[in-house]
Design a binder for these strands. Structure first.
Lengths: 197, 197
DNA sequence: TTCATCAGTAAGCGTACGCTTACATTATGA
DNA sequence: TCATAATGTAAGCGTACGCTTACTGATGAA
């Protein structure tokens, strides 16, 4: 009998490397040759793990989402009574925003949205992302029960937008780290509470 | 003597077509052959107008910015005493957001930010964009002089982020037109006023 | 040991792309 | 008119890319 199939293990091993390559160079400029070289394998090995380059990219989208959720979930488990989960999330993102290159992969994908598979993968990611944020905001508002807070769903989209513009500003060097943190903190608070600081 | 040089006129004539192509297909996937075909000329004619494909793209970035500013400026000149300029701007964007594909060009560019020329062009565009919005917000706040409004510079970045996420949601079909308008209206108001509706 | 299957290497195929070259035609001011 | 530079057409050059093929060596249950 033959040896046992290790395709899944290999996929898990190489996916972070693949994702980082796409994050650094975008979708089109990342060549399959470069992916193979970074992974330390020949190209056809990648093609045994995924049917084509597009599938590698879609897998990378899933990976960065899973990575974010894993980090956030760990963060939310650390009980801290002073701050709500939403506040801790915002504070964390203000500090570590875009550390992996999450948004670079998203931007790369957003240039390929006429491909239905890529569009679907991105849409799915955004839905989950927003839902996660919305739940934290709703929980925060319930705990603080202010009189007039923004609709949690809308506020969640706005927080996603806030993170996006913060990523862009980091990418383009538009704001200093300090200003970016202030942006996340003050506007984040406004979106959570429904009133300025 | 030779005929007179019409390079500038030709550039102005073709630039909207070039920009639309980049908006629809992204930077990498737009081939110079396709650009030429859409423009109804041969490729080398484009290369007489711009040194290379990258220059065509950077020109397209400038074009979509100029176009937005032209539209907004016209909008702001129409005097309307009920609403401030900032409110009209938000209302307009809620309705016509991304009509030309402004954000698609930006996303395409954001996948190419390791090229210093493209990065500089995008950074310049964002700076001007944010400054424009900030001025409108500051004017709005001065007119309404509420007690606690968000810092205009931060609010302007947040509005940029709000527009970005609204564009993304439109691109990916995440929100209905109605929901998207509500997002722009309610969160926009929150960012301007510093308090929920 | 056998042998079917998996893992890895090396090379290359077909195509598409950015950009250039070579050349013909046209318009214009001296 | 006519020299001259602008404008237009057609073809192709070199390279890079996505993906495949052909092959060799390793693995491990029967």
């Amino acid at each position: 009998m033959p040896r046992r199939n290790q395709t899944n293990e290999k996929r898990r091993e190489l996916l972070p490397i693949v994702a980082r390559a796409f994050a650094e160079r975008g979708y089109r400029r990342t060549t399959t040759a470069e992916l193979a070289e970074r992974c330390g394998v020949q190209e056809n090995i990648l093609y045994r793990l995924w049917p084509d380059k597009k599938a590698m990219f879609i897998a990378a989208i899933g990976y960065v989402y899973d990575l974010s959720v894993a980090i956030w979930s760990r963060l939310l488990k650390e009980e801290e009574d002073e701050k709500t989960a939403a506040e801790r999330l915002l504070a964390y993102e203000a500090e570590h925003l875009g550390e992996f290159g999450h948004s670079r992969i998203v931007f790369a994908g957003l240039s390929e949205t006429d491909d239905p598979d890529i569009q679907a993968a991105l849409a799915d990611m955004y839905q989950r992302y927003q839902r996660f944020v919305r739940e934290q905001i709703a929980a925060h508002q319930a705990r603080r029960h202010k009189t007039t807070t923004p609709d949690a769903a809308l506020a969640a989209w706005a927080v996603v937008g806030l993170g996006t513009v913060a990523s862009i500003s980091r990418e383009l060097g538009l704001l200093s780290d300090r200003q970016r943190r202030r942006l996340m903190a003050e506007i984040g608070r406004l979106l959570l509470e429904g009133s300025a600081a």
